[in-house]
Simulated assay, not measured.
Amino acid sequence: MDLKHNQITVGQLLSDPRSRSVLQKKLPAVLKHPLTGAANTVTLEQLLAFAGAYLPQKKIDEVMEALQKA
């Protein structure tokens, strides 16, 4: 999947069935979070900067690899 140099938005990721499936599989709690809908305009780059405080780098790398393959 073209992640547009990490400038793809969360909304675009969630609207694509392939990337949504990756997120459901790798980060199921994220899709259930009440602020997920409000994050539609957040870029993947912004999300990665935020996620680094909460997720181990290994998990982030795993998700990014799966998104790139989707």
Rank of each mutant, 00 (worst) to 15 (best):
M1S: 14
L3M: 08
K4C: 05
H5F: 09
Q7R: 09
I8L: 06
V10S: 00
V10C: 01
G11S: 00
G11Y: 01
G11T: 00
L13F: 04
L14K: 00
S15F: 02
S15W: 01
S15Q: 10
S15C: 01
R18Y: 12
S19Y: 05
S19V: 03
S21A: 15
V22C: 07
L23K: 00
L27W: 14
P28R: 02
P28V: 01
A29V: 12
V30A: 15
H33C: 06
H33I: 11
P34W: 05
L35A: 15
L35D: 15
T36C: 12
G37Y: 06
G37D: 03
A38R: 14
A38V: 07
A38Q: 13
N40V: 12
N40I: 05
N40E: 06
T41G: 05
T43Q: 02
T43K: 07
L44V: 08
Q46E: 14
L47E: 00
L48V: 01
A49T: 10
F50Y: 03
A51P: 12
A51E: 07
A51Y: 08
A53H: 13
A53P: 01
Y54C: 10
Y54V: 00
L55H: 03
Q57N: 06
K59W: 02
I60D: 05
I60A: 01
I60E: 08
D61R: 01
D61I: 08
D61P: 09
E62K: 02
V63L: 11
E65P: 11
E65D: 14
L67V: 09
Q68C: 09
Q68M: 11
Q68T: 13
K69A: 15
A70T: 13
A70F: 08
